[in-house]
Structure formats: C-alpha cells, structure tokens
C-alpha cells in the first residue's frame, strides 16, 4: 500500500479555517496545525452510498410538490471529475438551497421573505459513468445575514460530494457568474483569489433549453490519485 494514495491540496486551493471576515470562523476554527496522516485503508476507503435509491423527482426540485415553485427555472449540469480529469462515476451529489425569495425551508431561517409551499430546496442526483449529473431547480435568491452591516449572501447552491474515499469528501457552494455580491461575500472570499473563481458556474447556452430554462454548467473536481509507482 502506498502511503500517499490521494494527492494533497496545495496552498491556495481551499479557504483558511480562520478567516476572520467570516465572523463565525473565529469561534469555530482550530488554531493548531492538522496532523498529516499517511494514507491507510481508513482514508482511501469511504462510503459509496451505492444502495441509496433515488426517486425520479430528487434531481428535479421543481417537481417535488403539488405545483411548480415560483422563480426562474434553471438547469444545473456538470461533471464530477478527479484532478486527472477522470470521471467519478456513480458519485452521489447532494444539493440544498433557499427559494427564489431568499428563504430556506428551515426553522432556523427567520429572514422576512416568503416561504414557497412548492419548494423544499433539497435534491440528490447520481453521476453517470462519465461523471455527469443534472439538476433542475429555480435560481435561489440573495438573502441578508448578520455577519456585518448590510451583509448579503450571493445566490448560491450548496453541494455535497463523497467521491471514492474518506479523503475525498467535499462540501462546497456553487455561485452564479458575475454576481455583484461576490465581491462583498466573506465566505466566497475565504477562498484565495485564483481558486474562488472555480466556484462560479458558467452560463451555458448549449444547456439552455428554448422556451423553458437557462442552463448553468458546474464541474466539480475532487482529489486525484498519485501515480502508481513501478512495482
């Protein structure tokens, strides 16, 4: 067994845990360095969740209730890849988001914006053999939060991925291109410049369906394997 089965992230790929402009990090981030673990079976295995049965409506957030939700219908499609561009086939992709008015269907969200009885905001999809996944949803709204004066989160969709191993687990957020709020968002900006742009989906006319919905492409890249040494 090699001791470094998965490549390590390089400085600049991920946020710094303590990012004080995002105030919640101050009370919730470790100050000591993480202990680097050689890769044993514990790190290179992980849940496949292959037995999770997905209902047909799970990747279409506009078809989960009695009627269609309000808002701008969108298609979010992309591929789950590793750093070598190899598809992560069969990957479970989970998303959650607020409604078009900027309110989550969640008891903790007390933003004074309407709930939409036709929108829960949660979805799951399984990537195909090419790593391709697809969701139909509505564009989430921006919403205020109390991080600082006049703080607003840019529209975003939360993504959760497992990949092939415990080491490849990732939770992230997808943003929309050219959102003026990105420049003011300390969560987006916690990722170093040069990397944060990867969190913006691309508007894609080829994915856009006439008379129906705008298309956005969002590819997700998980850690790749180190080259296998000669044996």
């Amino acid at each position: 067994m090699k001791e470094e089965t998965y490549r390590r992230a390089t400085a600049g790929d991920h946020p710094t845990n303590l990012s004080p402009d995002y105030k919640s990090t101050v009370g919730r981030s470790p100050r000591k360095s993480a202990v680097v673990l050689p890769h044993s079976l514990s790190e290179i295995t992980g849940p496949s969740l292959a037995n999770e049965r997905l209902d047909a409506s799970e990747n279409d957030l506009t078809k989960q209730r009695m009627a269609e939700p309000l808002g701008e219908r969108i298609i979010v499609q992309g591929r789950v890849l590793d750093q070598d561009g190899k598809p992560v086939s069969g990957a479970l992709v989970e998303i959650w988001q607020c409604n078009a008015a900027g309110r989550y269907h969640h008891p903790g969200d007390q933003h004074d914006a309407p709930l939409d009885p036709n929108f829960y905001g949660g979805g799951r999809a399984r990537a195909d053999a090419d790593g391709r996944y697809k969701f139909v949803t509505i564009k989430p709204g921006a919403y205020p939060w109390k991080n600082h004066h006049n703080a607003w989160r840019p529209a975003h969709i939360h993504f959760s991925l497992f990949g092939p191993a415990f080491a490849t687990r990732l939770i992230t957020q997808m943003y929309f291109p050219n959102d003026p709020l990105l420049a003011f968002d300390p969560i987006y900006k916690s990722v170093p410049a040069g990397a944060r742009e990867r969190l913006q989906a691309a508007f894609d006319m080829d994915l856009t369906q006439p008379e129906w919905a705008l298309g956005y492409r969002f590819d997700i890249v998980l850690r790749g394997r180190n080259a296998t040494p000669m044996e």
């Binding site: 790929d13 919640s24 799951r124 939360h158 939770i171 987006y188 990867r198 969190l199």
Partner: peptide, 23 residues
Amino acid sequence: MSHALTPSQTIGPFYWGTIVNAY
C-alpha cells in the same frame, strides 16, 4: 492535464433535511 481542485465551503446553518435525515 491536471484539473484544479474545487475549493471547500462551509455547510452553513441551513443544511437541508435530505443531507442529514436521509441516512
């Protein structure tokens, strides 16, 4: 060719029920 890693972000306070209750 090497593809650049997708950066991590917080789960936030409003993680949807499906991501917790489904398992």
